[in-house]
Write a protein that binds this DNA or RNA. Structure first.
Lengths: 315, 315
DNA sequence: GTGAAAGCGCTAACAC
DNA sequence: GTGTTAGCGCTTTCAC
């Protein structure tokens, strides 16, 4: 419970600054600064250090992040722009990125394309506020990136290979597809179809449409690979609508496994894509490599098939 | 501690400052400042303003957000701490909050409890970096909130009523339950059971367990209300396991509708909870009301029943 | 109408 | 070992 009830809080305590701490410990502000930020080049008498630490504790000093960033020209924040927070893949990428950032002592400033868009987001960010920008599946049509680059802010595109710039990290979709094929072959399938993927990610309607097209074509395939779970729900619905059973009449594997897969009927066999690792890797690369070097990484860790109920031997 | 600095600025990209713009426009920096921030008390000759604007355009000046915040003691950022980004309800709350924030010219710094926790998050934030903190469904056990309050940072709890502090905004769960009951009664149900809710939100296992307990009890109820969709998937699975059909043998309504509901078998009738509005309202209240006033708002807009396939007349 | 001066709170180079 | 000196880039009186 919070000790001070909001209504009865006393007058706001004057903020404690470095100078206050220094005065109390009878040392110079710069010494306190070095103690606080753990400067390794500082050689200080244990007794002095103790005094400083005591003063910090007594005063309840907390560094002003703004002043620190302004002076040191590093904000300790990373921008992250996603298409939509409610998109499950984006959520996982954000989660991975946030963890990696925290491990590096950094924080994430998020924005999404359901808001006023990338251009405005970068404007609001202003100069100096972020040390780098992570873009999830963004078509980077606007000149924002070039502008960013000119002001020295490194950026990285996640989950989408980005043209000639070669600043991206993507999941290993080929490996995922290969895993799906291997699985289906091992069940005895010889004719395997793949429904087309969309760069932006599938929708329910898109999956249904693609499946109907597949059906209309009169394909001989006994198994089909769907680019993602959302598209798969559409495909499954289309199949159900024409009375085809899964996996009896047709086996279905989805790529890019996400939670709803397990709750579908039948539960969907899918290949897991390491979205969290994508975010994590993005943060690490963004922080470690400069703005000028190309980055083109494929994340393969943790890609694996999760067998559920939508695949079986061909009839 | 101190992260490796990403992307050092290119050699010729010396940052443009207010002073540069001022020099170019032959005015004082303070005048430029006022023009940029749209100070209404500024009376300036149209011709001078034009010169300033031109200088801004020519130099590609962008204000340094850090310096501005340091000086004005407002950061234009809000902290948002959620249990887990991959939790669909949290994702919606974040989405709503981000939109509202952007409309107010503010930005969100996010953190989640899957990382190193609230205490560390607030530590990383440091002083001055946020103008307020939004906590989603956090048990606020630690003394972090009191500490925050002492340094004058207002906070608000979302989606959980928080003890005596009365600083929260929550969805109208009573109205939601009432809607569910009305719907079931109109179908002819007279005995309606409600599965217990958990403060932290249900899990698949929790829903299954609760449903088995309900079954074991030999209840005469012909319809049951489940606290959320995740719990409902568990409940549905438990029902399927004992061969009871939905809605034939038992009607099921979930509260707090979320996407997977439509893809379940049968598609789940559920009451929509306005998670996005919760986030939006949280931001608005946090920004408008001071740290000292109690806030206890119930968001009822947009609560409504979405009829899908899991409810029908009692047999 | 515009300018001058004084910092916001901190860090970094260098002095002693 | 610890202190001095300069700002980082901006806003805000207040002066003229």
């Amino acid at each position: 419970m919070s000790p001070t009830a909001p209504g009865r809080r006393g007058p706001r305590a004057r903020r404690v600054t470095l100078a206050d701490v220094a005065a109390r410990a009878h040392v110079d502000p710069s010494v306190v600064s070095k103690v606080v930020s753990g400067d390794p080049s500082l050689r200080i008498r244990p007794e002095t250090r103790r005094r400083v630490l005591a003063a910090i504790r007594d005063t309840g000093y907390r560094p002003n992040a703004l002043a620190r960033s302004l002076r040191s020209a590093r904000s300790g924040m990373l921008g992250m722009f996603v298409p939509d927070f409610t998109d499950a893949a984006s959520a996982r990428i954000v989660a991975g990125a946030e963890t990696a950032a925290a491990e590096l002592g950094m924080l994430l400033v998020t924005g999404s394309n359901t808001g006023p868009g990338l251009r405005r987001y970068v404007e609001l960010l202003g100069r100096g506020r972020i040390d780098g920008l992570l873009l999830v599946r963004d078509e980077q049509g606007s000149g924002v990136l070039g502008e960013l680059e000119r002001s020295g802010v490194p950026w990285l595109l996640l989950d989408l290979a980005g043209g000639q710039a070669r600043r991206h990290v993507v999941p290993d979709d080929e490996r995922a597809a290969a895993l799906a094929v291997t699985h289906l072959r091992s069940l005895g399938h010889r004719r395997i179809a793949q429904l087309p993927a969309r760069r932006a990610g599938g929708t329910h309607g898109h999956g249904a449409t693609a499946m109907r097209a597949f059906l209309r074509r009169g394909s001989q395939a006994t198994a089909v690979i769907v680019p993602d779970v959302v598209a798969a729900t559409g495909a499954l619905a289309a199949l159900r609508a024409v009375g085809r059973s899964v996996p009896g009449d047709l086996s279905v594997v989805a790529l890019r496994d996400l939670p709803p897969a397990a709750d579908l009927t039948p539960p969907l066999t899918a290949v897991r894509t390491p979205f969290g690792d994508l975010g994590r890797r993005g943060v690490e690369l963004l922080v470690r490599t400069g703005a000028d070097r190309p980055v083109a990484e494929v994340v393969s860790t943790g890609v694996r098939l999760v067998e559920r109920g939508s695949t079986g031997p061909p009839r």
